[in-house]
Write a protein that binds this DNA or RNA. Structure first.
Lengths: 190, 190
DNA sequence: CGTGTTTATCAACGCTTGTTGACTTTCAAG
DNA sequence: CTTGAAAGTCAACAAGCGTTGATAAACACG
């Protein structure tokens, strides 16, 4: 074809498939999200999904691409570091639903849980390391437990009290916790 | 048969099925845990599973029975309430793997997520209500985010720093957080 | 128009799943 | 021993899955 234009017809369907895949994977998890359903959402033939992405697993790998986009918080005063972090997470999760895809699928899918560990080890931990008082990996892990636990309860389990909290309430409650995990002196063993 | 003994032959297989089901559901999640695999683990015929439990969904409902067994912490000094709670959770999760079953399945299975909400609303929230300063449901919800997030990171995602923490370290770190969620004055909105 | 590549369609495959019904074995009770 | 219910076995079903290959439509370019 030697098509010089940047917009090929196939790119639009590729994108449609990816969008439908993210939605289905995020809503149903890996096993219950069928290629046939994804194709129906994108209004195309199931065979095209395989044609463009090779297999269900490769489609998932593409749909689970995620950049946590943590900025470097060098100019943030130490006192409000926790609040800033929590606010960033809230904003990042409201944007697209890739993290919900990961959270929903990481529980049963090996690829997804590896991706999740990769995000922790490659994106979260290195950034937080700069702000941690000591034992940076443990502190980053503790932050992950609180932030992922909140996402789990709000977006997946949908516990009513957590769903109904306003964003600034969340920041006010979780901010100090995150801050203490990063900067509080390690607690003495009782 | 009119068998007067309490131990019928069928009870042993029923229990074997249930044990195998809990293990498989906990390891693989609802969809990937097949009745055939559960039957193989219990060394019986797949048909028996249906014979005894009716369907896969009913088997799951039986396997996901869970009592969080929260004691009433009336005699616990307020200062160590957080530590006591965290310690109780750690002990409760090490015992059997029913909670791991729920955590793995609640993410994709409607029955499981309902069960999870029921545990929160029927067991956790009522007990914590007695110790919360105000807004008891929000405080109980916050405790749930931290405890479930920890379980997620340790048992499901297996983030290395969290997996390797000793139990008393966990208590020392999470105890103050849980305590603050229950008894600290509600943070002022910035 | 004609030609060749890209894009889409369709029917079918092999496989696994939950579930069922007919059949055989086990075994206590008369 | 005979009888009848309980417990277990086996093969098969209908449905759904991911995936494939042959085939048709769409379309840019000579």
């Amino acid at each position: 074809m030697l098509c010089g234009m940047a917009e090929k017809k196939s790119d639009r369907t590729r994108a449609a498939i990816l969008a439908a895949a993210r939605e289905r994977f995020g809503a149903d998890g890996y096993e219950r999200a069928t290629i046939r359903a994804i194709a129906a959402d994108a209004a195309i033939d199931p065979a095209m999904v395989i044609r463009y992405y090779g297999s269900k697993e490769k489609l998932f790998a593409a749909a689970a691409e995620f950049d946590i986009r943590l900025p470097v918080f060098t100019d943030v005063p130490l006192a409000s570091l926790g609040e800033t972090l929590v606010r960033h997470f809230l904003g990042r999760w409201g944007g697209d639903d890739t993290l919900r895809v990961l959270l929903r699928t990481a529980v049963t899918n090996e690829v997804a849980v590896d991706r999740m560990r990769g995000i922790f080890a490659g994106q979260l931990a290195p950034t937080l390391r700069a702000h941690a008082l000591d034992r940076p990996d443990v502190r980053a892990g503790l932050v992950a437990t609180q932030m992922l636990g909140f996402a789990l309860c709000r977006y997946i389990l949908e516990l009513p009290p957590i769903v109904h909290m306003r964003d600034d309430e969340v920041v006010s409650w979780l901010g100090p916790t995150v801050a203490s995990y990063l900067t509080a002196p390690a607690p003495s063993q009782a």
